[in-house]
Computed example of a mutant assay.
Amino acid sequence: MTGEGASARHVAIIMDGNGRWAKRKHLPRAMGHRKGVEAVRELVRGLQGTEIECLTLYAFSSENWKRPEEEVDDLMNLMRKFIKSDLPEFVANDVRLHILGDWRGLAPDIVEMLEDALEQTAKGSRTLAVALNYGSHAEIVQAARQAAAEGEITEEGIARHLYSADLPPLDLLIRTSGEVRLSNFLLWQAAYAEMLFLDVLWPDFTPDHLKQALAEFAERERRFGGR
């Protein structure tokens, strides 16, 4: 049992609301995604003022391929630009990049960029985990298969083969935009995580919103099934 005042070591965020942000401002949907990337950049820069060891962001789900081709292309191009522009800053600020999902199924040039980024940031002390081409059901199925290949299937065996195996246990999961669902994200990892659903749209999410979320987390008492 963890009492009040505890710090969140691992925070995950479902970054939702880019499209609605753009619609409310009568802008193209692509502008919402670009503004959302700026929110990511500011959040990562603000991590140094927190006790967070790992921040996990839901960037692109395996279901997002169903979106219009033009939107998917824009998201992929944004990813390319983000990696290219922000990688030096990650290295300078001791941030380690970790990828969750079937990211090797992305375009070859993006895979190459990610491999380089993973190598360059491997020794970072604080982790930014990004879920790309990710779906939690598929992750659990894959982990169960690998556990079965080793013998008896156990919780520990499955956990050992999850994409997040070397990350701290998930403490807090945040979703923006007012939606109250997990959308196939970290279903196994979120079993005893605290959850916070915020009405703010992702492009408007700031490091101050994160600090407020961490303060609310510190006020909660985590029982992990106990009393």
Rank of each mutant, 00 (worst) to 15 (best):
Y163S: 14
D166A: 05
E69L: 14
G157V: 00
L97V: 12
G105Q: 00
F90I: 03
L170D: 05
L78R: 03
L167A: 04
I153H: 11
V95N: 06
A144R: 08
N133V: 02
T127V: 13
V141W: 14
L162D: 12
H137T: 14
V95C: 05
L132N: 14
G178T: 02
S61R: 15
G105M: 01
F90V: 04
E112H: 13
M113S: 12
K84G: 00
P88E: 11
Q120Y: 10
G151W: 04
V180Q: 15
L167D: 05
V72K: 03
G101H: 06
F90R: 00
A165V: 11
L173R: 00
D166Y: 08
E150G: 04
V95Q: 08
E139M: 09
E150F: 05
E156Q: 11
L170E: 03
L118F: 14
H137P: 02
E112T: 13
G124C: 09
E115L: 08
P88I: 08
V141I: 15
T127K: 06
T121W: 01
D94R: 01
T154C: 06
I153L: 14
F90K: 02
T154N: 08
A144N: 07
D109L: 05
E156F: 00
E119P: 02
R126G: 09
K81N: 05
D73P: 04
M79D: 06
G105C: 02
Q120F: 09
V180D: 11
R160V: 09
L118I: 15
V141P: 08
S177N: 04
W103G: 04
E69A: 15
S85L: 04
M113D: 13
D102Y: 11
A138W: 13
D73K: 13
Y134T: 07
L114I: 15
L132S: 13
R67H: 09
I110Q: 01
E179I: 01
L78T: 03
Q142W: 11
R160Y: 10
A149G: 15
P108Q: 10
E63P: 06
A159H: 07
P169R: 10
T176D: 02
F90H: 04
K84V: 01
I140V: 15
A159V: 03
E115T: 11
P68I: 07
R104F: 11
E89S: 06
R104I: 12
H137N: 13
D74C: 07
G151F: 01
V72G: 07
E139W: 10
N64M: 08
E155I: 00
S61F: 14
A107K: 13
A159E: 12
E70M: 09
L75Q: 03
G157W: 06
A107H: 14
L75C: 02
V180C: 10
L75W: 00
L128C: 10
L97A: 01
E63N: 08
L128W: 10
I83F: 03
E63R: 05
L162T: 14
H161N: 13
L87N: 00
F90N: 03
G124L: 07
L167N: 02
D171C: 01
D74E: 11
V91C: 08
E152G: 04
L132A: 11
L167E: 04
T176A: 03
L75D: 00
E156P: 01
L162V: 10
V180N: 10
E152K: 13
W65P: 05
L167G: 01
N133M: 08
A92M: 06
N133E: 09
L170I: 04
D116A: 13
N77P: 02
S164R: 04
